[in-house]
Design a protein around this nucleic acid. Structure first.
Length: 128
DNA sequence: GTTCTGACA
DNA sequence: TGTCAGTA
């Protein structure tokens, strides 16, 4: 259960998530409006994303890249309970350590190249 | 400086 | 979706 705790631990700010996912704040907020994600809120009403939210956002990005509309994405994601991120054996893509490492490298690259790096096109292949 | 909501091109 | 406004 320590796994779920870590995954739902609010750690990322909007800016970080933007770089991590390559999505714009506008999109992220829009997806939240459509109940695709449910970030926590901090003091000043700031969104605080958990590891799960980022992972979920990446899934959304993958679907978007495949030309799936919001309705379709919502359908796919609706099968994934928010807080109920059980140790789904045959569906687990990456371990926490791997995902963490991956995200960190993306951050570094995003920093080097300026803004959105390769996160946009290639990334979608690794997920889902 | 960063993020938030609402709104409009 | 982008972006501007007015805040917190």
């Amino acid at each position: 259960m320590a796994d779920n705790v870590r995954r739902s631990m609010p750690l990322f700010s909007m800016g970080i998530v933007q770089k991590l996912t390559g999505l714009t704040a506008r999109q992220i907020r829009y997806y939240e409006e459509n109940d695709l994600i449910h970030p926590e809120r901090s003091e000043g009403n700031r969104r605080v994303f958990s590891f799960n939210d980022v992972d979920r956002l990446l899934d959304i990005k993958s679907l978007l890249d495949e030309g799936v509309n919001l309705a379709g994405i919502r359908r796919v994601l609706s099968e994934k309970p928010v807080v109920a991120n059980r140790p789904a054996e045959g569906k687990k893509a990456m371990s926490d350590a791997e995902l963490m490492k991956f995200l960190k490298s993306e951050l570094v690259q995003a920093g080097k190249f300026g803004k959105t790096s390769l996160i946009q096109g290639e990334l979608s292949r690794f997920f889902r």
